[in-house]
Design a protein around this nucleic acid. Sequence first.
DNA 1: CAGTCTACTGAGCGGTCGCTTAGGATCTCC
DNA 2: GGAGATCCTAAGCGACCGCTCAGTAGACTG
Lengths: 202, 202
Amino acid sequence: MTEDMWAAVPPGSPRRLLTAAVDAFAGVGYHGTSTRHIAAAAGMSAGALYVHYRTKADLLFQIALAVHESVLAALRDALAAAGGEGHAPRVRALVYAFAGWHARHHLAARVIQNELGALEPEHAERIAGLRRTVRALLRDEIRAGAAAGEFDVADVEGTARALASLAIDVCRWYRPEGPRTPEEIGALYAHLALRMLGTGNG
Amino acid sequence: MTEDMWAAVPPGSPRRLLTAAVDAFAGVGYHGTSTRHIAAAAGMSAGALYVHYRTKADLLFQIALAVHESVLAALRDALAAAGGEGHAPRVRALVYAFAGWHARHHLAARVIQNELGALEPEHAERIAGLRRTVRALLRDEIRAGAAAGEFDVADVEGTARALASLAIDVCRWYRPEGPRTPEEIGALYAHLALRMLGTGNG
DNA sequence: CAGTCTACTGAGCGGTCGCTTAGGATCTCC
DNA sequence: GGAGATCCTAAGCGACCGCTCAGTAGACTG
């Protein structure tokens, strides 16, 4: 479905450092992680990290860039596959992809939900733009479906926020050893989403 | 409605330290906050913190205890006020209270959602018990409503998890200067919850 | 084979961390 | 009015932080 999240990151040390940082940031947070720990997890000494990344914050920024582009690609793939068969199937595809992505990539997702405050301001602004794009994809689809009379939604902004929030929060509670696969979570959430939009069937 | 969240914490220095810690933890995380910063925000020097709390982790534990008891009290008050008038009004009251609480206390809520990993194991286990109690309140109500034929729910566990998740995530995106009051968010979410449960009206 | 570039190690710099300690100020109780 | 308890400050301990840098090993270039 979606290509590898780290496809744009050079393989070898840069990618190993990046994935080690994701694991560490997701576990104990950006401030709780030392550059020595990240480097050791990637199999090298602390100084070598700075051959590939300017600072620890730059490492976080590269993670945020790759992850947000991955989720954007997943949503656009879902919309493309859904085609123009009405707004309900398109929203269903969006929520299925969004929730499933947050389960599959729950560690990376936790990093970009909780640790963005550590970015430098200009980097944070660039990431904020990507996040606005993601939110707009869902909101516009709901607005169009409501305008077409396909959905029964009094508060488009609030309901879109709730749908996105529901899918995003999967990354907080999801455990791979839990009873549900990412696909099952996506299917359940798509079903709940259509009910929230008042389609009648779900 | 609900009494002050810090009612059980001695006023004066202990309470000032605790609220200063909540603000700091919510802003830059547990590991990103220094005991010197907390003490300064409470108007005293770093050493004075240790007169009132054993360690920095103990401060977090006291926060977690007070906050979880506050949310439990809010839910029990909501159930008591809803009485036995059917399961839909009881779930509506639960979601209204839960979502509204997470908006009103979004800073404290962020701390207990994101920073519990820093607790010592025995403290973490005690907090986990309180969290199980909270989840059970919602799940049991949904299960009872489904058993009574009042809800149309195929996956009680998953739907209960989704309802709780939706309300909890309010604390991540809520901003006091935003367009909606905690009460409006609670009302919208209660409406969406009943739709998710297939009550037909919402 | 000399010269250059890249990736890396190991040591270490200045600074901040959580926490302790000695000692002072203020209050209560007998 | 002395004894003890409580709350606080200022100083500082050892550990760890992000990051730098001199030096090295190996690959590529002419």
